[in-house]
Structures are given as structure tokens and as C-alpha cells.
């Protein structure tokens, strides 16, 4: 072990210990629960696939998982598409940091308050309906805005957009404006420079923002409960119910791991799509140049 490796090890130790105790160990416990059985109100150690099979066979689980995937993909895509121009603006165009701080400030408002705000906006007597009525586009309030997958997606987009912007900004700030100029100098438009230079170099951050949003949305169980109605339910809520209400931890654990698998598959698909379109460099980027003394 070189001295620098040792120093690195010491510095990483607290975080590593924390992750081990509060993430790895519980995850292993949860994983083993998924093979146990729940009989009566007790959980009995076992090694069976019953929980996985009954999860997959359950039409409810399939329906909410489908919902979670669709809402997750839509929200993550919309969030990423909205955060990229904002991130680009903040990194390369804006002269002051004010807008950046304003975006951070939105986190000061509570998650629940924002959900209620959307309930108000989308409800029968809400702003959206009032505007549509005023404009004569509809003549009775539209019930379907609230308690729908649409309501869940729009609320979660609002909640996770600042996270995504932050990740996009941090990915882009690694890419010098000079590279964009070099690309334009060599004949691309500004948009071309984005696809050929910014996107490939920011790929990890952009995919990170997409996947983070997807996972947070697919696992969210508060927003679907409050604005989702029956058509907007997602797996997160179903899993939460196994632990809170039904007390069937093994089934909940199995469902959680199935969701984890779904996320992995989506991640793989996103990577494959990125490679296919050339937005992600096919070969691995090597380490940055050593500092020349």
C-alpha cells in the first residue's frame, strides 16, 4: 500500500463504515427476507421463491410497476430535458450565480407543501381548471387532472428538477467553454457542439441525473398517494404498504428487489441507447492528464 493509498483509505473509512452498517447490511438483510415466508403475523426464515412468484403473478403488482416505470421514465425524461438547457445556461451563459442560488432556495420549501400546492393547482377548483373555464376551452371542470399519473409526473418533475439541474451543472462545469468554441471553430453549430462535445463528456452526469430521478420517482410513495388516485399508484406505495399495513415483509422485500432489477435493466437500456446514438463515447475515457510539473 502506497502512502497516498493509505491516506485515501483513512479518509474514506468513516463514510465506508457508515455505508456498510446502514446500507450494505440492511440491504443484505432485506435480500434474505425476500426468501423468508410470512405465516400468520410472524416472519419465518426459509429459502423459497414464493414471494417473487406471487409478486410477479399479482396483477396489482404488475399494474403499479408498469405505472412506476412509465411515470418514472416520463418524469426522468422531462426533468432531464428541462434541466439540460438550464444547466447549459447556468454553466456557459449566465454571468451571475443568482439563478443558481434561487434554484437551491426552492429546496427550502417542504416537499409536502409542494404536493399540496399541486393539489390546489390541479384540483376541480384549481388554477388550471379556472383558466381553462375562463378561456372557454372546457365548460365543466376537468376531474382528470388530479388523481392521475399525469398529476404524479408533474408534481415529481417539479420536486426533482432542482436535483437534476444541480447534477447537470456539476457535470457541465467539468467541460471547458473552450471545447465548445473549438467545436464551433471546426464547423458545428452551437447545437452540434452540444451533441458532439458537451453530451459525450457530460454523459455520466446526465445519465446520473436521469437515473436518480427515475429511481426517486419509481420509489416515491407519498406523491402517488396524495395526487395519484387509483390510476396513478406506483410500486413504491405497494411496497411501503407491505411493511406498514400488511406486515408481509418478505413479499415487500421481494417486490423491492424486483424494482431494483427493473432499475438495473433501465440503466442498461439507457446506456445502450446512448452508445447507439453516439452520445456516450464508446470507448472509456481515460484518466485526465497528469499535471505537468
Amino acid at each position: 500500500m502506497t502512502p497516498s493509498q493509505r491516506t485515501g483509505g483513512i479518509l474514506a473509512a468513516p463514510a465506508a463504515t457508515y455505508m456498510l452498517l446502514f446500507f450494505v447490511v440492511p440491504a443484505i438483510l432485506l435480500f434474505s427476507y425476500s426468501f423468508w415466508i410470512s405465516s400468520g403475523f410472524r416472519i419465518v426464515p426459509d429459502f423459497v421463491l414464493t414471494n417473487y412468484i406471487s409478486a410477479i403473478r399479482s396483477p396489482l403488482f404488475l399494474r403499479v410497476t408498469y405505472n412506476a416505470i412509465v411515470i418514472g421514465l416520463v418524469t426522468a425524461s422531462v426533468t432531464l430535458c428541462l434541466s439540460i438547457p438550464v444547466g447549459y445556461y447556468l454553466t456557459y451563459v449566465a454571468r451571475s450565480k443568482i439563478i443558481f442560488y434561487l434554484i437551491l432556495v426552492t429546496w427550502f420549501s417542504s416537499y409536502l407543501v409542494r404536493i399540496y400546492a399541486w393539489r390546489t393547482l390541479l384540483g376541480t377548483n384549481g388554477l388550471l381548471n379556472a383558466v381553462l373555464l375562463q378561456l372557454g376551452i372546457v365548460d365543466t371542470p376537468v376531474q382528470a387532472f388530479l388523481f392521475s399519473p399525469f398529476a404524479v409526473a408533474i408534481t415529481l418533475t417539479h420536486i426533482y428538477l432542482p436535483f437534476a439541474i444541480l447534477m447537470v451543472v456539476s457535470a457541465m462545469s467539468e467541460i471547458k467553454a473552450e471545447l465548445i468554441e473549438a467545436s464551433r471553430d471546426l464547423g458545428t453549430s452551437a447545437l452540434g457542439a452540444f451533441f458532439r462535445v458537451v453530451a459525450p463528456n457530460a454523459a455520466q452526469g446526465l445519465i446520473g441525473a436521469f437515473m436518480l430521478t427515475f429511481i426517486l420517482v419509481a420509489g416515491d410513495y407519498v406523491t402517488p398517494q396524495m395526487v395519484g388516485g387509483s390510476s396513478g399508484q406506483t410500486t413504491g406505495l405497494l411496497i411501503a404498504d407491505q411493511f406498514r399495513k400488511t406486515g408481509n415483509w418478505p413479499l415487500g422485500a421481494a417486490q423491492a428487489f424486483l424494482m431494483f432489477l427493473v432499475s438495473l435493466v433501465i440503466y442498461a437500456l439507457v446506456l445502450a441507447l446512448g452508445r447507439l446514438t453516439g452520445l456516450i463515447p464508446a470507448r472509456r475515457k481515460t484518466k485526465p492528464a497528469r499535471e505537468v510539473a
Partner: peptide, 18 residues
């Protein structure tokens, strides 16, 4: 810039790392 018959070698090279 992309329409000018001019190419530039940048002060810090600005080569594409990917």
C-alpha cells in the same frame, strides 16, 4: 465562427478528451 474560413489553435489546445 463555424462559417468562417478560419481555424484556431487555442492557447490551451482545447482538444476533445472523449
Amino acid at each position: 465562427p463555424e462559417k468562417r474560413p478560419v481555424n484556431m489553435v487555442f492557447q490551451r489546445y482545447a482538444l476533445f478528451p472523449h
